Computed example of a mutant assay.
Amino acid sequence: MFTQLLHYFSKKSSFEKKLYTVLGYYPKNRELYRQALTHKSYKKRGGLHNERLEFLGDAVLGFVVGEILYQKFPKGNEGFLTQMRSKIVSRKTLNKLALEIKLNKLVRYHKSAAHQSLYGNALEALVGAIYLDKGHHKVAEFIQKTLLLPHLDLNDLTKEVVSYKSKILEWGQQNKKKTIFKVLESTGKDHKKLYKVALLLEGEKLGEGTGSSIKRAEEQAAQKAQSQLLIK
């Protein structure tokens, strides 16, 4: 029996063995997981990449996280639960979780596309692949036991700000201050675009941020402005 098991495991590819360290099981459909971990910049796959699985994984992740939060916080209202879900499925959190489970060692991409969000996107695609390969029960187990429980404290997460941009826009509205975000410049090619955004308060620049998307640049600018204005 032991010899048979040894033979079974020895036949597994290097990719499958690495996947096992992340998932805790061997996949039924190996190619589905290869696709999930292949960025569109990786040319050797003949155009097969993870964007469709990322779309599916985003929906599955949102649903499963919603289930978990509904059970975890029985007194939480809709607004609270929505904010908590937004924090968990944010690009920042997904990037962090992807690195925690060492998914970065499995993702394939061209060096021109290298940026941290690539790993969070791949994590969403992986969730989509697990759902298609193993179903709802297995993907829910992966999200809760592999991603959330070991790496996120949901009680601590309740204290985090959802969006610096939302917070500062709310402050501007309450204090009747005109607050706008202005894109100053964008540089780089499609796979490595970089945006610079300024936050203007009553026409005066209060913060500036850069990021691989306008949204990320706005968040950084808002965070800097918030610290200057001492907004809590």
Rank of each mutant, 00 (worst) to 15 (best):
K232D: 08
L81W: 12
G211T: 06
T210A: 12
K193C: 01
A36N: 03
F63S: 02
L56T: 07
T187L: 02
H136L: 14
G209T: 13
K182S: 07
G76V: 05
I180G: 02
N95D: 09
S14D: 10
R34Y: 12
Y33R: 04
V183T: 13
Y131R: 10
T38R: 02
I68V: 08
Y195W: 10
K40Q: 05
T187E: 05
Y20N: 15
D190R: 09
L32Q: 07
G211H: 10
I143S: 12
Q144E: 12
T38F: 02
E16Q: 14
K192F: 01
K43G: 04
K145M: 14
N175M: 07
F63L: 05
V183L: 14
G79H: 09
R34L: 12
H191E: 13
K134S: 15
A217P: 02
F63C: 00
K12S: 07
V197W: 00
K134R: 15
H49T: 04
A129H: 11
G62D: 02
Y8T: 10
N95A: 12
K87I: 12
H115R: 14
L32G: 02
L201N: 01
K138Q: 11
E219H: 08
V197C: 00
G203L: 05
D153H: 10
G66N: 05
S166V: 00
E208H: 03
K44R: 09
F181L: 02
R52L: 06
E219R: 10
L118N: 03
E202V: 00
L206P: 00
T38S: 05
A114E: 14
A225H: 05
K102G: 08
R85I: 14
H7F: 07
K43V: 06
Q4T: 15
N50G: 00
K11T: 07
A221E: 02
